[in-house]
Amino acid sequence: MTPYLIAFRAIVWREALRFVHQRERFLAALVRPLVWLLVFAAGFRAALGLAITPPYQTYITYETYIVPGLCGMILLFNGMQSALSLVYDRETGSMRLLLTAPLHRGFLLFSKLCGATFIGVLQCYAFLFIAWLFDITLPPLGYLAALPALVMSGLMLGALGLMLSSFIKQLENFAGVMNFVIFPMFFLSSALYPLWKMAESSELLHDICALNPFTHAVELIRFALYLRLEPHALLWTGLSLLVFGTLALWGYDPGRGMLRGKLKG
């Protein structure tokens, strides 16, 4: 096994172990979307009429509509949670261990990103399983077809978290991320309502939603769950992954000194 493969496996394994040790995090990750699915969706079912738009070929319940958005929500929270743990790692010093390993820094950060995505995708499948138990079902092959879309979206949102973690100075500043990243990204997207519905209220909000990378991640998942590929969503998600990943690498570049003051001991 090559040194890179050994290190990759160890970093992903450590992320998984850390997740297992934090049972509250696992519970919160599952309860959050389930509350939306079983409480919020039930309340809004009557209020929101949905037209038949692709990928749907028949009328669907509101619960069915928001399932991809809630998968996206899991990945978004997971991405931010991993950013939080990176800031924590930096404050506790274990980030130094990672960054002083004799391997390419970009590779080390990519491995960390893959570890976080792996955890996020597992949570999504646990959520889809519980949704299935509540009779919110999708095409059987859709569960499999959604895997690459979930991985891609997870990587993109994880890269966003990685980028943010390189710019956040202290753990205390993380609350700002909740207010200025998670909530706007989630609500200004197609996770809870289709974009044409948003356009009826405000063209401007619709345009913002259409630019939001999270919208495209959700649509990528939505189409994949119905065995369809949405090239536009794939392109936007891929481009966002590239941009966030590049900025994260830049943020962690020792020559840029972005870590100055954050790693001083």
């Binding site: 096994m1 040194p3 050994i6 290190a7 160890a10 970093i11 261990l97 390993a101 004799p102 391997l103």
Partner: peptide, 14 residues
């Protein structure tokens, strides 16, 4: 586990 993790970061396994 800490030592194994570190060894892996240096490309040492098994």
């Amino acid at each position: 586990q800490n030592l194994r993790y570190f060894a892996a970061l240096h490309g040492l396994g098994g």
